[in-house]
């Protein structure tokens, strides 16, 4: 016989000694603003009152140097503001290339066609290799290696071409895996339903699997693109004067690193909107799925 617990004779204890502070919506907004100001204020105060605060502000946050670095001048300062455009156009170009090539690579990896078996193996090796090599080494191998090889057209390109090529090669490997996970996330029943309607494998992919997979992979794809935006800074090792390279030139010229802070701020201007957009998409997708799960 299992033991039966009787109903308690008195009401259960519902009050905790660790009572949480409950704030009205208006008061909680004031409270969050206040705590933000205090935390930020502490950071700023640290740069003022630290023993090396004066030097720190002079080397990194000299307004005059920041302004000069942003615009550049005819006394040898490079313009970080002009340099960032190199990062932007490289990013935009590579993004398009990676989206297309990544999808092709993912598609090759998930097809079951016997004819494509060698391609499938190559694709697997490709993703293994280029996800495993640090992107800096890919820049060096592509940027200096290819021109060294002397094999015609491909060896006669300029550094920005090789920079874009290295970024595209590396990120295609990452993005292909994101796509592949998305394609595999579509339930098998969807494929059975499509094929039983007499749709070919290619039409099933285009009309049924891809539209569902794309929805799933948009947040992780954007995540990779945010990281790609930043990695465009690495093309500086090929001697391309983009934002970071310009800032370094200025630092060497004027013994002041404020230009690097300008470059950092410009990168933030680029990545933060994309980050917020990604977060918004994730929230929207969550809301949609939670409604569906009712």
């Amino acid at each position: 016989m299992s033991q039966r617990t009787d109903a308690p004779s008195s009401a259960p204890q519902l009050f905790s000694s660790r009572r949480r502070l409950h704030l009205s919506p208006r008061y909680s907004r004031v409270a969050s603003l206040a705590s933000t100001v205090v935390v930020l204020g502490l950071f700023v105060a640290a740069t003022f009152f630290a023993p090396g605060g004066v030097q720190f502000r002079h080397f990194f946050f000299d307004p005059h140097q920041m302004w000069a670095s942003l615009l550049g001048n005819n006394r040898g300062l490079a313009s970080v503001g002009k340099g960032i455009w190199t990062n932007i156009w490289m990013f935009c170009l590579c993004e398009v290339l990676v989206l297309i090539l990544g999808l092709l690579l993912a598609w090759v990896r998930i097809t079951t066609s016997a004819i494509l078996a060698p391609l499938r193996m190559l694709a697997t090796v490709y993703t293994d290799v280029f996800r495993g090599i640090p992107i800096l080494l890919v820049f060096i191998i592509v940027g200096f290696g290819l021109s060294e090889l002397n094999i015609g057209w491909i060896s006669q390109q300029n550094p920005p071409f090789y920079g874009c090529m290295a970024i595209t090669i590396t990120y295609t490997a990452y993005v292909a895996e994101v796509y592949r996970a998305g394609l595999h996330s579509v339930p098998n029943g969807q494929i059975l339903a499509a094929r039983s309607l007499g749709l070919s494998e290619a039409t099933t992919m285009r009309r049924v699997i891809l539209p569902q997979a794309i929805r799933t992979v948009i947040p992780p794809l954007l995540n990779d693109f945010i990281s790609m935006q930043k990695d465009t800074a690495l093309v500086s090792i090929l001697g391309i004067t983009e934002a970071v390279q310009s800032a370094q030139i200025n630092a060497a010229q004027s013994f002041n690193d404020s230009g690097l802070v300008v470059a950092a701020l410009l990168f933030l201007c680029m990545t933060i909107p994309l980050t917020r957009f990604t977060d918004g998409l994730i929230d929207r997708d969550r809301a949609r799925r939670l409604v569906a799960a009712r």
Binding site: P187, G189, Q190, L192, A193, A194, R195, S196, L197, G198, V208, P211, Q212, R215
Partner: peptide, 16 residues
């Protein structure tokens, strides 16, 4: 399959 249609236990309608 264009001549033989199939209906499944779990409907498998296309959600998109």
């Amino acid at each position: 399959r264009r001549n033989i249609a199939m209906v499944f236990q779990s409907f498998n309608l296309f959600p998109h």
